[in-house]
Write a protein that binds this DNA or RNA. Structure first.
Length: 375
RNA sequence: GUGGAUGUGGUGUAGUUGGUUAACACGUCAGUUUGUGGCACUGAAGAUCGUGGGUUCGAGUCCCAUCUUCCACC
């Protein structure tokens, strides 16, 4: 049993089984289910920690082993007193292991049992990640929750490839557990793989659960597959996960997926989507996606979202934000990023309330209609 | 007035010795974005080449006239 992180279940929605709970971490409690903003390079792009805490109301943020290892280097961050101190974020932090980045960014990569050789996207230099080296980096960074080094299979992948990959990820997880040196303050989460094959998902979950890690994640979905397949694997895999530990669905960030994840029994999600689409001029609102960059908003002097309580919506118009985005002004990116993140955190706050009311299914159906999704 | 230069999509420019559907950048318009990507990616619209006439099988690309703008000179 890890002392770093523990999960407390408060309520299960009678309509859906969704979980309302608290994750206790060394840097504070997290009310779940939760959406975690992504701060890849030790910063949630364009926002200060104060804005994240007070305006976005983020409870935990995610950062990245791969990027921080390459620049500025994990030893430098350790020297700075750890990631919390370095970036001045006092709340909980989760670091991804770099497994996903090595596969999506690295030009040249060679996967072996020992680990992965890859080339830096910054300068092309060669590097090697193993479960042991990744644990050392994540220990240096000092996040409250650290992810095991895994392989994320592309979609689609063959059964054989997925099986071999999943089994290796399980062996790597054991090596991560053995190499993790700071269990008092950092909780190591395992990542369930197995692609879109249910028997592999089951096997992955069973073997990883035997390691008795303090939390578990679902990896390898939301990688470009149709929504039906995503939901199928999500709803199959989540019940296989321990009930007394946090459940993390990696890489999910559209409103419908977040709601479906909560319904399936997921506690945590993260995604670059809200900040990325913000940089390209798009907002999420309670009435659907608003591409505020589009010409129809040129003279629209209403806020992005009438229902939103964020700083952006309380003070600025669509016309102004469109102007900023068109003019490539930094403030446009900031205002949209702040809004999109606040939209998702407020969406999850609403989900928490609906779970407590045992009304999440009704809420989902109403939300889908209003947002413009098809059920 | 004389001499020279200039005139190509919204803007700035390419367009070999004349040869099929006039190129590029920016801009505009739209789409994309799910454990990476801050100014991204994909696509679309848009000029008949100042105007008129001529040579030629065929002209943005040669000739004439005319207009525009600029420079020099008187």
């Amino acid at each position: 049993m890890s002392k770093a992180v523990s999960y407390e279940l408060l309520h299960e929605c009678k309509q859906t089984g969704a979980r309302r709970g608290i994750i206790h971490t060394p840097h504070g409690d997290i009310q779940t289910p939760i959406f975690m903003p992504v701060g890849t390079q030790a910063t949630v792009k364009s926002l200060t920690p104060e804005e994240l805490k007070e305006d976005v109301k983020a409870q935990i943020i995610l950062s990245n082993t791969y990027h921080l290892y390459l620049r500025p280097g994990n030893k430098l961050i350790k020297q700075a007193g750890g990631l919390h101190n370095f970036m001045r974020w006092t709340g909980p932090i989760l670091t991804d292991s770099g497994g996903f980045q090595v596969f999506s960014l690295g030009d040249l990569r060679t996967i072996q049992e020992e680990g992965v050789e890859f080339k830096s996207h910054l300068d092309g230099s060669r590097h090697f990640f193993s479960p042991e080296s990744v644990m050392e980096i994540e220990n240096d960074l000092g996040a409250d929750i650290i992810m095991a080094f895994d392989e994320c299979c592309p979609y689609p992948s063959t059964y054989e490839y997925t099986k071999n990959s999943m089994e290796r990820t399980t062996r790597w997880a054991l090596r991560c557990k053995d190499a993790h040196k700071n269990t008092e303050k950092q909780a190591l989460f395992g990542i369930i793989q197995g692609g879109f094959y249910k028997d592999l998902r089951k096997k992955s979950a069973e073997d990883l659960i035997k390691l008795d890690l303090p939390g578990y994640a679902i990896g390898g979905i939301s990688v470009g597959e149709p929504k039906e397949e995503f939901l199928d694997i999500l709803k199959y895999t989540t019940p296989l996960m321990p009930k007394d530990k946090p459940r993390y669905l990696m890489g999910v960030g559209t409103p419908d997926y977040l709601i479906e994840a909560a319904i399936a029994g997921i506690d945590m999600c993260d995604c670059v989507l809200p900040t990325r689409i913000a940089r390209n001029g798009t907002a999420m609102t309670w009435n659907g996606k608003v591409v505020v960059r589009n010409a129809i908003y040129e003279k629209d002097f209403s806020p992005l979202d009438e229902e939103c309580d964020c700083y952006t919506c309380k003070n600025y118009t669509r016309a102004y934000i469109r102007h900023l985005i068109k003019a490539n002004e930094i403030l446009g990116v900031r205002l949209l990023s702040l809004h999109n993140l606040r939209f998702l955190t407020s969406l999850m706050e609403r989900v928490k309330i609906e779970i407590e009311r045992d009304n999440l299914l009704n809420f989902r159906n109403e939300f889908y209609i209003k947002y413009g999704y098809e059920k």
